[in-house]
Write a protein that binds this DNA or RNA. Structure first.
Lengths: 324, 324
DNA sequence: GGGCGCGGTGACAACGTTGTCAGCCTACCG
DNA sequence: CGGTAGGCTGACAACGTTGTCACCGCGCCC
């Protein structure tokens, strides 16, 4: 910038004014400076700018589990789009469900002075973020609540959705319902399981531990669990799967056996209408979820100081034929 | 930092040394400084650090079409993982296939002094990046070549893959092969179409324009095109689809009509084995593609100055039964 | 005993930008 | 014709950190 100033025969400050097209600069000088800048290949240093002005790195951080997962990729896409509307770039970091790594990444993002953070938490303690929040970095939690920190949060109605799904199976006459979940350690899984239990209890159907399978990581594991349950005495006549990876495995196994057991799955997925039997699922609007969080964040960034909110978005039972 | 120094009764520089755990500091002072830092809630300012030291923002930029697309999400995941191994964060920006937006985003990333860039180009002229490259910002192009700029590039063997796919259809006896593609404006589509033509020419099969459909954006469009082609005289007996979104539409339409027309699709996809007929596809290792680019980038970042390379990764014909 | 090397520390400038303020000039008003 | 308001410009400090260099004191060697 000092070089540009010398070349244009003006002061450093005038160059700064031109670059930021501030008012009160003669057109003639503007032209001279611009010419000098392009001749010298001037490249503004965004770092120095945000260092000096103290705020506005025009960057927000998004912390998720795994960017390659379509759910998070959708979220990232929406957040990036909202960010773009605010002329802001997005740093995306994946925690891989590791609380320690999550903390490291969040601290790193803060040390980069991001204007705000959207976090899908992996850990259970986010108290370490309190200083940052108090010093003015807004944080919005997405899909799961924060631990030990009062902050804006946008959630799905996991419990209500699961309740509706299991209720539907019960209405169709099922009493032995196999429930498959990823990990009871994950907030959404706990909520969904609670919802399923709500529905069972409300219908006076007993909750049988043998019908609940935890720790199912992938479609293969799901298929194996289904096979095992079906091969035992008093097999389930219906299945409730708590996420779409599991649902996929259940579908595969049922199809392999030509079983007509009922199935309701949490999470919709793109090819749900293409698989052998069209699937009944608990669907929700992932994009709306992300958009809500992102818009809330940018409200905070632009200074809305109201009390932290928790927003719960609805889920919907989409019937496509496998509930009966 | 100056506050920490005062509190610990040492100089500013000693604090800096402790924070960066530089050698030659008495353990006693280290402890005092660390204590003071935590008491005051010291938060290192990464911006100021990279401004002063001139290099090492520990950030790389990834420019893709659309983060919500699974192909790019996979790439982003791999790049983020490689970046993490180098203690580097990732700024992801989506060009939405808009060359102007691409340029704006790349300039913005450069003004943030990222350590390097991985670009899936949307535009055709990247000469504007030359000053940045010359000033030491490595750029690796991914999946499509750069325009007007000599730079590292990692590509797929689109042409070879398409050639193999069409050749397989020809071997199965097909002579009228419907070819469906997104947009001839996209590099990969042109390459794949060229490969298809190679195979047709090599087999002495005439290239009929009526059998090629351009501008197919989504599965619905693909289904409509297939329907139209099948309803005309001399319909194709086989289809070659140039990306997986199109393939999905073709599958739907063929299934709807219970047609047993052959189909080979470019791009594998997760549920390729679940759809009504298991699909024969041209597959490739997206993760390897991304990993190659990311590792090449970090080689450059750490100073490997050799001549820009172009790496072409192979594709593979995966037969699952729809080629005949 | 003087010189030398080295571990340990601090003063100071610098990175590239922007905020503050002072100062210039012109125009306009009384 | 003096005063003043306001458009326009520049000098300077500051943002928070790190690189450079100088300095001090100690132990060691000749």
């Amino acid at each position: 910038m000092v070089d540009v100033a010398r070349r244009a025969g003006v002061s450093l400050k005038t160059v700064s004014r031109v670059i930021n097209n501030a008012p009160h600069v003669q057109q003639q000088l503007v032209d001279r400076v611009l010419a000098a800048a392009t001749e010298l290949g001037f490249r503004r240093n965004h770092l120095a700018s945000s260092l000096r002005s103290g705020q506005a790195t025009a960057t927000v951080g998004l912390l998720i589990e795994d960017i390659a997962n379509p759910f998070y990729a959708t979220i990232a896409g929406v957040v990036a789009e909202v960010a773009r509307q605010h002329d802001t770039l997005l740093i995306i970091a994946s925690s891989e469900e590791d609380a320690e790594r999550e903390e490291r990444l969040l601290r790193d993002l803060c040390s980069r002075r991001v204007d705000g953070l959207i976090v899908v938490p992996a850990g259970y303690d986010h108290a370490f973020l309190r200083p940052e929040v108090e010093l003015g970095t807004p944080v919005v939690f997405l899909d799961r609540p924060a631990g030990g920190l009062l902050a804006d949060t946008v959630l799905l109605d996991n419990r209500g959705g699961a309740r509706a799904g299991v209720q539907r199976l019960i209405e169709a006459g099922h009493r032995r319902i196999g429930i498959l979940l990823d990990s009871i350690g994950v907030y959404t899984m706990r909520e969904r399981l609670d919802g399923a239990q709500d529905a069972l209890a409300a219908a006076g159907v007993g909750y049988e531990t043998r019908l609940v399978r935890d720790g199912i990581r992938d479609p293969v594991g799901a298929a194996a669990a289904v096979a095992d349950m079906l091969d035992r005495p008093d097999p389930p006549t219906g299945f409730f799967s708590l996420n779409n990876r599991i649902t996929l495995g259940v579908v595969e196994e049922l199809w392999r056996r030509r079983s007509d057991a009922a199935l309701v799955g949490f999470d919709d997925f793109e090819v749900a209408h293409l698989v052998p039997r069209p699937l009944t699922v608990i669907a929700y609007d992932t994009r709306a979820l992300a958009r809500t969080a992102a818009e809330l964040l940018f409200q905070r960034v632009s200074g809305n100081p109201s009390w932290p909110r928790t927003i719960v978005l609805p889920t919907e039972l989409v019937e496509r034929g496998t509930a009966a």
